[in-house]
Design a protein around this nucleic acid. Structure first.
Length: 314
DNA sequence: GAGATAATAT
DNA sequence: GATATTATCT
């Protein structure tokens, strides 16, 4: 019985993505403040083109405390880059100028296989029992990730699990047979994302009321220190998702910042606790490999989407 | 279909 | 009141 768990646990450890793969997420979400600081906003469509209910809060006075005027590393690179030039010129209209960056809606979070994996890992460690949005979120330690993000994803994920349960129990044969692990189950066409990460066994069958021995609190950061060779995970993901290329190096964010432009978001630092930022190597520029992909151009409803990973589509 | 958001329940 | 879960919308 317990062997099952130690089994998948080992696997779990092995599959832990290296820091490199995890980093991107931390910078992924740009807070309104940050966006404002950089003068970033929607390229093509602005509030103007949306007669909808875009939740435009007009009068939110920007807090005077928003600006850490100290030596902000990123302050040096103002939106003067060529790329930005066009940018700023374009969105000159609209209300971006004084629009409440405070109330800007975050772009949709894109659950990449890596991110989802982290999610599954967290859930696995917490156990279905304790796997609630908040806890999961904390365990994931992904800055910018909100409880709602997790909740929403969790909802879908549970649905997915349910589906699988039904399939394995009702189908009888069920190739995958609760063994879980390998994603040889339902067609990836239906649940691409979910299929990308193995589902711990006990996820499917009813958690037996054993003496709950859930791990107190294992900051993944701690575990990560030991492993850093599971690139395979990424590879596997890539296989499942040929669309995206696992090139985690690509340091040119939306800010067109130079390689040495370290990003430090005082704004983002707000999560519960950040024991020790992985990526130890002090003095090493932690240029995150992320890319912000603004999806727009559709006169209809251009919605901004943040891609956590380089799409390599240039 | 994915993710966010509103509504409702605990 | 905060968080979780469910339902609905985009």
């Amino acid at each position: 019985m317990r062997e099952d768990e130690s089994n998948w646990f080992s696997k779990w450890e092995e599959e832990l993505p290296p820091p490199e793969e995890l980093m991107p997420l931390s910078q992924t979400l740009i807070t309104p403040d940050l966006a404002l600081a950089f003068d970033i906003r929607n390229p093509s469509n602005n509030s103007a083109s949306h007669p909808h209910h875009q939740q435009q809060t007009p009068p939110p006075p920007p807090p005077p405390t928003a600006q850490p005027p100290s030596s902000n590393p990123l302050a040096h690179s103002q939106p003067s880059s060529a790329e930005f030039a066009a940018d700023s010129g374009e969105l000159g209209s609209g209300a971006a100028g004084d629009e409440p960056a405070r109330t800007l809606k975050r772009p949709r979070l894109v659950w990449t296989p890596q991110l989802h994996k982290r999610f599954v890992d967290a859930v696995a460690h917490l156990g279905i029992k304790n796997a609630v949005p908040k806890t999961i979120m904390q365990l994931m330690s992904v800055e910018g990730l909100t409880r709602e993000n997790v909740a929403s994803h969790l909802q879908k994920y549970r649905l997915y699990l349910k589906r699988m349960q039904g399939l394995s129990s009702g189908g009888g044969g069920a190739g995958n047979g609760g063994g879980g692990g390998l994603a040889v189950s339902s067609d990836p066409a239906t649940d691409h994302l979910f299929a990308s990460s193995p589902v711990p066994p006990h996820f499917l069958h009813p958690v037996r009321p054993n003496s709950d021995h859930f791990l107190p609190f294992v900051p993944m950061a701690a575990l990560q220190q030991h492993h850093q060779q599971q690139q395979m995970a990424a590879a596997a993901a890539a296989v499942a998702h040929p669309h995206m290329q696992p090139q985690y190096h690509r340091q040119m964010g939306p800010f067109g910042s130079p390689p040495n432009g370290q990003f430090e978001h005082p704004f983002l630092s707000r999560q519960t606790q950040q024991p020790v930022h992985r990526m130890g190597a002090p003095g090493h520029n932690q240029v995150p490999s992320y890319v912000e992909d603004l999806e727009s151009a559709n006169g209809n409803g251009a919605r901004r989407v943040l891609t956590l990973f380089p799409t390599g589509d240039d």
